[in-house]
Structures are given as C-alpha cells and as structure tokens.
Simulated scan of single mutants.
Amino acid sequence: MAQNPLFLVPNIITIARILAIIPIVALVMSGDPTLRWVALVLYVVAAASDWLDGYLARAWNQYSDLGRMLDPIADKLLVNILIAALAWDGSLSGLDMIPAIAIIFRETFIPGLREFLGNTAVVLPVSQLAKWKTTIQLVALAAILLAGNIPQAEIVASLLLWAAGVITLITGWNYLSASWPHLSGIGKK
C-alpha cells in the first residue's frame, strides 16, 4: 500500500515553504526593522528548504506526483509574492523593477507553456541553468531583505537581482525556443 503523499517528509517541507510565505510577507510589510530581520531568517530557512526537500526525496526515495507538482510551485510563489511585497514596501528601486518584472513574467509564462505542452509529446526538462536561476533568485531576494536593514548591501542586492533577471530571461528564452517548433506548427506533419 502506497503512503499518502501528504505525509512524505519532502512534501511536508514543501508545504511548509508555501505556508511560510504568509508570515514572511507580513513581517516585511510591517515596516519594522526588527521584524524584517525575522522575515530574513524565515525566508532563508524557506529558501534552503528547496534544497532539503529535493535531497530528502532522493535520499529516502520519497518521490510523488504531488511533490513534483508542488516543489516548483512553492519556489515560484515564494519568489513572486516576495517580489510583490518588496516592490510594495519600496525595497526595489525603479530600475530594479525591470529584472523583478522579468522574473515574474518568466515564472508565470514558462509554467503556462509547460502546462499547454503537457498534452503533447514535447517535453521541457529542467535545465541545470534553470536550477541555478532559482538559486540566484533566492539569494538575490535574501540580499534585498538584508539591504532593507543594512543599506551598504543595496548595490550587491541590486547586482544579484539583475543577474537573476538576466539568467531568468535566458532560461525562459531557452524553453520558448525548444517549444517553438510545436507552437508555430513548424515541423508538424
């Protein structure tokens, strides 16, 4: 008898990552510098859990369809909702909104593309660059949270966000290019 996927440790960690978004955003939006430190700690734990749930799923052979679905959703929710909160509280400069919007666009568009292609023979496997993209996005957002309390970190945070934006666009383009023959009808018989 198969174990209920809700009770698999990697899935519990993924669900906890999704639920952690609520207090992280509430703490950021409070405007209190001390609570922003708490938000940063919770965020780092949530971001690190992305690695942990994958590691445990592999180490304990606890794979499930639920986990395969929830893990990328958790990452995208964490990134996109935190970007919205950081834009709301003024942590992102006007220019930093360019990579922020690029990230939100790609993180919404590519899953939609994957869903559309789900009923076809076209497979868009996650590339190594896409895995690095997620890591750089998570690190950039941690740096932006930090810069809210340590202004000297703002330039590093901005550079990391721009790097994340560029890599995000590259991976989005790679996925779109790989799927283009199917989307355009080129190569169909």
Rank of each mutant, 00 (worst) to 15 (best):
Lys76Ser: 08
Gln3Ile: 13
Leu161Trp: 01
Ala74Asn: 10
Ser127Trp: 11
Leu40Val: 06
Lys131Glu: 09
Leu183Asn: 13
Ala157Phe: 15
Phe7Met: 13
Ala102Ser: 08
Met1Ile: 13
Ala39Pro: 05
Ala85Val: 05
Val139Gln: 01
Asn149Trp: 10
Ser91Asn: 05
Ala140Asp: 01
Ile110Arg: 09
Pro125Lys: 01
Ser179Glu: 02
Ile13Leu: 14
Asn11Tyr: 12
Gln128Trp: 15
Asn174Lys: 14
Phe7Gly: 10
Val28Trp: 05
Pro10Met: 07
Leu8Glu: 11
Ile24Pro: 00
Thr14Pro: 08
Asn4Pro: 00
Leu176Ser: 01
Lys131Phe: 05
Val9Ala: 15
Tyr43Lys: 02
Ile136Thr: 06
Val123Pro: 03
Gly54Ala: 10
Ser30Gln: 09
Val122Ile: 09
Ala39Lys: 03
Tyr63Met: 12
Gly67Arg: 03
Trp173Gly: 12
Arg17Gly: 01
Leu124Cys: 02
Asp53Cys: 07
Met97Asp: 11
Ala157Pro: 10
Leu176Val: 05
Thr168Leu: 07
Pro181Ala: 03
Ala59Asn: 06
Val38Ser: 06
Met29Ala: 14
Ile103His: 01
Ala16Val: 13
Leu95Glu: 10
Leu78Cys: 11
Lys188Gly: 04
Ala26Gln: 14
Ile24Thr: 12
Gly94Asp: 13
Ile18His: 09
Glu154Gly: 14
